[in-house]
Nucleic acid binder design. Structure first.
Lengths: 340, 340
DNA sequence: CTGAAAGCGCTTACAG
DNA sequence: CTGAAAGCGCTTACAG
C-alpha cells in the first residue's frame, strides 16, 4: 500500500505551510493569486484527496447526512422494496451528492439508538421520513444537529419539516369521487396516529363527505399496514360490505394490491368499482390498471428535505423551517363517472 | 452543545488510562476482570459513544462500506427506482448493519472518480453491482481495499465475486419454453457486453435452441436498456415479426413492460403469447400477469456480497473469493403449453 | 498575506 | 496486566 498523500506533502510540494494549504482548500480570502496557484498545482500533481475523518475530527463537520426510513420492526431490513422509499431516497442521494455530502441510510435497532449513530459518525444532519415513537424524537434532539422531518406533523419547534397538505389531499380525492357520483366510498388507510399523515388524509375524506351531505361512518374506514398485502386482503370486504361504488386508498401501493385482488375475483375497474390512490408511485406505470391518484412529488420531497437540511447546516439556521409541497389529482381511468 | 464524552472521560471515571479503555473496547485479552468491569461501568454511566472518525484516523479502519450501483449516466440520480437495485440494497444494508458497518451508496460522477470516494471516506471495502467501463476497475484497484464484484464476469484476480450462472439461467429458461412446444422464441435482453450477464444469458438461450435442433438466429435477439420502456416498445415487433409464440426477457422488468403493452393491444398472456422472465422481482406480485421466471435471490446476492466483503476485510483475505448462487425456474402461468 | 502549534479523539507498538 | 506517548491528517485561533 502506497503511502497516502497528505496535506503535508502538498504543503511541501507547494513550498507553503499546511495551514495555507488548508486555507486555499476552503477558499479563505486574502491569499495571493500566486499561492493559490501553487497549492492547486501541487494538489493536482500529487492527486491529493482530503481525509474526511481527519477533517471531521478537526472541524466537527463530517459532510455525512443520516437518513432514517421506516422498517417493519427493529433489527430487520429496511423497507427498500417499498417504491415510495426508493423514490424518496433517490432524491435524497442525488441532492446530497450534488452538494458534496454522502448519506448513511439506516434503521433503528434495539441495541443502538439513532442518537448513537449520530454521535458515532458525527453526522452533520439527518432527514427522518415517517413516524416514530415519541421517544425517538426526544432522544434525537440531544444530538444537537439539524434535523428535518418528512411526513410528520410533530410540531416540536426543534425540527424542520417538509410535507404536503395531507388533509387537502384526502379532501380533493374524496371530492373528486363525489363529483363523479359516488356516495358509498370506502377509505383504506394506514394506521391512524396522532402526528401521522393518515389521520390528516382521513380528516380530509371526512370533510369532503360532510360538505356533500354524506354521513361519515367509522365503519367505512379500514386501517392497515401500508403494503400491497393489506389491499389484497381487503378485496372481499370491499365487495361484500356496504355496497361500495368506490374506494379511496391513501397509498398507491394499497390501491394496487386491492386492484389486483379485485380483478382476480372477476371485478373490473372502473366498471364494477372505482379506485382512487395516493402518491403516484412510478411503478404505477407497470400496472395494467390506469390508476387515478393524488400525485405528490416523492423524489422532490427527498430533494427538498436535503436542500433544507444542508441550508440549515451551513447557515447554522436554528429557526424552524417548513415547506409544504404541492399535490394534485392525476386523472387516469380507474374512476367511473356514475352521476346521471 | 454539551461536550462530547471521550475515551479520556471514561478513563478518568474508571481510574485507568485511555489505552486500557481502548483495550477493553476492542476485547484485548489479558485484562483483569476487575478492570473490564470498571471500564464497562464507566462507559455505561457516561453513555460513551466512540467517535468513528477518530478511530478511522488512528486505526485506518472506518467500518464504512461503499456500494456502487449503476446510474443512467454520470451526475444523474441512481437507479433506485429499479426494484432490482432496491432489493439488492436491502440485503446489503441489513447485512452491513448487523455486522457493525454502515454503507455509503453513491454513483460515479464526472468530477470525482470512485477512487476518490474510497480515499476520502477511507472505505474498508466496496461492493460493485453491474458493469462499468474498464477504466473504472483499473482505477479502483489503486484503492487497495477489498472489493467484491456482483454480476460481473471480470476475471481480474484482484476482485472477489458474487454471481449466478447466467448461461445456465438462459439455458433452463429457453429449454423450458421449448419443452412447452415453443420453437419461435424471441430474446429480449440488455446490451450484450464482454463481461456482462446479458451475453451469458444469450449464450444459454442459444445452447438450448441448438440442442433442440432449432436454428439460432441473430434477428431474434433484441437488445435494449433494462427498463420497462424497452419491453413496451418491443410489443409491435413481437406481434408482427417472425410469428413468435414465446418471448424470453432476460429481466422481469422488461417482461413486465412488454406484458403491459401486449395486453393494451388486446393480446392475452399466455393464450396468445407466452412470456418468460428473469429475476423474480418482488414487485411481480403486484402485476396481474402471473409471470413465469428464472428466480434468483436478489436480496441474498446483497447479503452474500457483504458477508464476503466483511470476511475479506477482517481476515485480510487476498486470495480471490468467488461464490455462485443458485437459480431455478419459478413456474407461474405466463407460458402456455402448445406441445401436442 | 502566511506560519507555528495546539488540538480534535482515538490506537498501538513499546516498555515495564 | 497496564500506562506514557507518539501519531493518524486535518483545522483554526493567534501572532506577526
Amino acid at each position: 500500500m502506497e503511502k497516502r498523500v497528505t496535506i503535508k506533502d502538498v504543503a511541501h510540494e507547494a513550498g507553503v505551510s499546511t495551514a495555507t494549504v488548508s486555507y486555499v482548500i476552503h477558499g479563505k480570502e486574502s491569499l495571493s493569486e500566486e499561492t493559490i496557484r501553487r497549492v492547486n498545482d501541487a494538489i493536482r500533481t500529487l492527486k491529493y484527496v482530503p481525509h474526511m475523518s481527519a477533517r471531521s475530527l478537526a472541524s466537527n463537520r463530517s459532510h455525512l447526512l443520516g437518513v432514517v426510513i421506516p422498517q417493519t420492526e427493529p433489527n430487520r431490513p429496511l423497507m427498500f422494496d417499498n417504491p415510495f422509499y426508493s423514490e424518496f431516497l433517490s432524491g435524497v442521494e442525488y441532492t446530497a451528492r450534488m452538494n458534496g455530502y454522502h448519506m448513511i441510510i439506516s434503521g433503528e435497532d434495539m441495541d443502538e439508538s439513532y442518537l448513537e449513530i449520530c454521535k458515532k459518525r458525527n453526522l452533520d444532519g439527518v432527514v427522518v421520513l415517517g413516524m416514530y415513537p415519541d421517544e425517538f424524537y426526544y432522544t434525537l434532539k440531544e444530538a444537537n444537529i439539524s434535523i428535518v422531518l418528512v411526513d410528520s406533523y410533530c410540531q416540536d419547534g426543534y425540527f424542520h419539516s417538509v410535507q404536503i397538505d395531507d388533509e387537502h389531499g384526502g379532501y380533493i380525492a374524496t371530492k373528486y369521487l363525489i363529483e363523479k357520483g359516488h356516495r358509498k366510498i370506502a377509505l383504506l388507510t394506514g394506521h391512524i396516529q396522532k402526528d401521522g399523515v393518515s389521520r390528516r388524509r382521513c380528516l380530509g375524506y371526512r370533510r369532503a363527505l360532510e360538505e356533500a351531505g354524506i354521513a361519515f361512518n367509522d365503519h367505512d374506514v379500514y386501517q392497515g399496514p401500508v403494503e400491497h398485502e393489506f389491499g389484497m386482503e381487503m378485496a372481499d370486504t370491499i365487495i361484500h360490505k356496504n355496497s361500495y361504488t368506490a374506494v379511496f386508498a391513501t397509498a398507491d401501493i394499497v390501491a394496487i394490491g386491492l386492484s389486483k385482488a379485485l380483478k382476480a375475483k372477476g371485478l373490473r375497474i372502473p366498471e364494477d368499482i372505482s379506485l382512487m390512490g395516493f402518491d403516484d408511485l412510478s411503478i404505477t406505470e407497470l400496472i395494467d390498471t390506469p390508476l387515478t391518484t393524488v400525485k405528490q412529488g416523492i423524489y422532490q420531497k427527498g430533494e427538498a428535505a436535503v436542500n433544507m437540511l444542508i441550508e440549515c447546516i451551513e447557515k447554522k439556521e436554528t429557526n424552524r423551517q417548513e415547506i409544504t409541497l404541492p399535490i394534485h389529482i392525476l386523472e387516469r381511468a380507474s374512476v367511473k363517472d356514475i352521476a346521471q
